[in-house]
Write a protein that binds this DNA or RNA. Structure first.
Ligand SMILES: [Zn+2]
Ligand SMILES: [Zn+2]
Length: 730
DNA sequence: AGCACGCCGACT
DNA sequence: GTCGGCGTGCTC
């Protein structure tokens, strides 16, 4: 029996706390306990028994255990503590992020098992002709057995219909404990049929499934990655000696976890499927969490935070659209669900499949280094041919709302043919580079060959490499014309210009705000689905997850913003956008066209992109990153500060930069610089970037700086944060 | 994050 | 005199 315990507390402090265990109390790691802290009483989670003694600290007593079993299994707890160290986030916040809010507050973890409903008959003949809704519900349950009351409700039925069927003994209920017998279909439903390429990939993955092995599945849009995932999951279940305790995790981006996606998996795995996403209510969250914790043999499909669920025995992990930015948490505990998924697979000694039509350079780098195995699916099922992708050179062309004459003409032709148009603009603060629209030259730093970044905040150009700062020149240093302008300007007017030019065609602006509420986006996209001619204007986000079969023309208004972005991932994201757009438009009989506006029509990457070969473009971009010592060839950490004035924010970061220069002179510091969107909600934001070839020294330095900042206690008006492996540098 | 302690201004 | 503002510091 332990004398003392080390615990995580739900407090934003980068440390753990120790307590004395009273006589006769038996504690295990992962258990929740009640402890005193100062004058408060808190729910804590045990992370270590009998830790090394702390000098000069008198320990307080543990008050009481909340249950006599660990709410977090060993593997999940280890994952969270590792992530806490890796991402330099307070351990208590990481650990408690993995508990449903009710359990964080200390609610009992014993839960009534959820109730699952099954048909008690194979047909609907016994129902009277009048009972139309009951019949529909019964038919639905026959097709999708094993539903809970909440899934029944979300399918549009209600409790009284269910009760009526129950009274006639046409349906029956089972609790979680019986799930193994009732889990349908088992053995798995007849497999999806695979083509030769899919078979080859599958058998190559199956060669070595008893050990940890990451697989990168490069599959162009429409090549059937999902079928491979499904067959792989079936195979893993069939091969497992104990399928009744086997769990699997499928991560998907926020936007693509639709009822259709779920239905597709349910077709094959029935009630083994469970869902996890941000729209679940507290009860659903707690129930699903508990099912996972109880070790039910689930295949869990979910978004980012699903990777933190308390799985006890994972037999495989899938990360779909692995390049998707929504896998990285952008505030608080800034973890990458993709990277944690790989860590989990390593813990579980199982395979992990990362799939994408446009793999991240991080994953390609891992494949290139032999850490991931690369598989390809390059055949597009179905009839639609590859889209035709062309560049429009907009040098010395007048732009109207960011639109060139040739693009407007093409839009007109498309609308007249009763087809749809998709236009991509860059998001706010995306392209802070100043370029000459006469000769296409971006303004470069006089001291290095880096491009200067335009900061609207003070109307200055800065070099993020050497710190050089200058005013905006009047004339182009290259050709002398007064044609300098920030790239991507005028896109606020795109919508208005289009509306004036095409008054009879709906122009739909889709942005972050319009997706905020679920369903609202669906409503807006109604004319799109119905296939009536319309023009959609939106950011990169539009290219994710949605298929637009009636769209035959896609336009990228400002490729230069991506090419010359201050974020070194700009070109990668541009290449992904072009491929995703091409893959999603013109699915049906019509072949789509993609038009890219640029001042760099001779740019090798853009031209190669038009050939549709993502991998070959991506390998070249990766070489450029290596040559420039940028991730994934090196490692990066960002420190950000926000405060009531830019001066205050920069001062803190200056101090931090000095500290780096003093303690780790071999680690280069970029910045401090005002953030591209320098002012947000009346607060001024700035950042520095630290970079190094090796992770351990950078990690040590990051850790020192965090400790320094934490014990320094900045005034409450200043807030700082650290971002390990930052994914967006704006 | 809480929550106390502490040290100055305007209220009964 | 003392109620209460929130700046600073600590929590095993
Ligand atoms: Zn420079
Ligand atoms: Zn010029």
């Amino acid at each position: 029996m332990a004398q003392t315990v080390r615990v995580a507390l739900p407090r934003p402090v980068r440390q753990l706390f120790d307590y004395r265990v009273p006589e006769g109390m038996d504690l295990v790691p992962g258990q929740r306990i009640r402890v005193p802290l100062g004058r408060q009483r808190l729910t804590a989670l045990v992370v270590e028994l009998d830790p090394p003694e702390l000098p000069n600290v008198t320990l307080k007593d543990v008050e009481s255990p909340l249950e006599d079993w660990p709410v977090l299994p060993d593997q999940t707890r280890e994952l969270l503590l590792w992530a806490s160290r890796y991402y330099q986030h307070p351990p208590g916040e990481c650990v408690f992020a993995a508990l449903p809010p009710a359990l964080r507050r200390g609610a009992p973890a014993e839960l009534p098992a959820p109730e699952y409903w099954y048909p008690a008959t194979a047909h609907t003949d016994d129902l009277s002709a009048q009972a139309r809704r009951q019949r529909e519900l019964l038919q639905w349950l026959i097709r999708y057995p094993g539903q809970t009351i909440s899934t029944i409700r979300s399918a549009g039925f209600n409790r009284s219909l269910l009760k009526a069927l129950h009274e006639r003994d046409l349906v029956r209920m089972a609790t979680g404990e019986d799930i193994n017998e009732t889990a349908a279909p088992w053995p798995p439903a007849p497999g999806v049929s695979l083509n030769d390429a899919q078979h080859e990939v599958l058998s190559s993955i199956e060669q070595n499934t008893d050990a940890f092995q990451p697989h990168l599945l490069f599959g162009i849009t429409g090549s059937g990655k999902t079928e491979v995932y499904i067959r792989h999951l079936q195979q893993r279940l069939v091969d497992d000696p104990e399928p009744e305790s086997a769990q699997a995790l499928v991560l998907v981006p926020e936007i693509s976890l639709t009822p259709q996606t779920l239905a597709r998996f349910e077709q094959h795995f029935g009630s083994r499927m469970a869902v996890w996403h941000s729209a679940l209510n507290a009860t659903e969250r707690l129930q699903t969490w508990s099912r996972v914790r109880r070790g039910e043999p689930l295949i869990l499909i979910g978004t980012r935070s699903a990777v933190l669920l308390p799985f006890s025995r994972l037999i495989t992990v899938v990360v779909d659209e692995e390049h998707d930015s929504s896998y990285k948490q952008m505030e608080g505990f800034r973890y990458s669900a993709r990277d944690l998924a790989i860590y989990r697979a390593r813990q579980s000694g199982c395979p992990v499949i990362l799939g994408s039509a446009t793999p991240s350079l991080e994953s390609l780098h891992n494949a290139g280094e032999g850490r991931f195995r690369l598989h390809r699916l390059t055949e597009r099922a179905g009839s639609a041919g590859l889209p035709e992708t062309r560049l429009i050179d907009v040098r010395s062309r007048p732009l109207e709302g960011g639109l060139s004459r040739p693009l407007i003409d093409q839009i007109e032709t498309t609308i007249k043919a009763e087809e749809q148009v998709l236009l991509f603009i860059n998001r706010r603060g995306f392209s802070p580079v100043v370029m000459c629209f006469e000769c296409g030259t971006p303004i470069e730093c006089p001291h290095c060959d880096a491009r200067l970044t335009y900061h609207r905040f003070d109307n200055c150009l800065r070099c993020h490499h050497c710190g050089h700062q200058q005013a905006l020149p009047r004339k182009c240093p290259e050709c002398g014309e007064e044609a300098l302008n920030a790239v991507g300007q005028g896109t606020e007017k795109t919508e208005t210009v289009l509306q004036q030019r095409f008054p009879d065609t709906p122009v739909l602006r889709i942005d972050r705000d319009s997706t905020r509420r679920r369903g609202q986006l669906d409503e807006m996209l109604k004319p799109v689905r119905e296939g009536q001619p319309c023009i959609l204007v939106g950011t990169q986000m539009l290219a994710k997850g949605h298929d637009f079969p009636a769209v035959t023309l896609a336009g990228i208004l400002d490729a230069d913003g991506g090419l010359f972005s201050s974020d070194f991932r700009g070109p990668e994201h541009l290449a992904q956008l072009v491929m995703q757009v091409g893959g999603r438009s013109g699915r049906a009989a019509k072949t789509g066209r993609v038009l890219i506006q640029t001042c760099q029509s001779g740019h090798p990457m853009l031209n190669e992109l038009c050939q549709g070969d993502y991998l070959s473009v991506a390998w070249k971009l990766l070489d450029e990153r290596k040559a420039a010592d940028l991730p994934p060839a090196t490692f990066m950490t960002a420190f950000r500060v926000e405060g009531p004035s830019m001066e205050d924010s920069l001062t803190v970061l200056d101090e931090l930069a000095d500290k780096v220069a003093a303690t780790a002179p071999d680690i280069p510091v970029l910045g401090p610089f005002p953030a591209i969107i320098a002012r947000k909600a009346g607060r001024y934001r700035a950042q520095i970037l630290l970079q190094h070839q090796q992770r351990p020294p950078l990690h040590r330095l990051t850790n020192q700086l965090c400790q320094y900042l934490e014990q320094k206690r900045l005034p409450a008006s200043l807030r700082w944060s650290v971002d390990v492996d930052p994914q967006s540098l704006d």
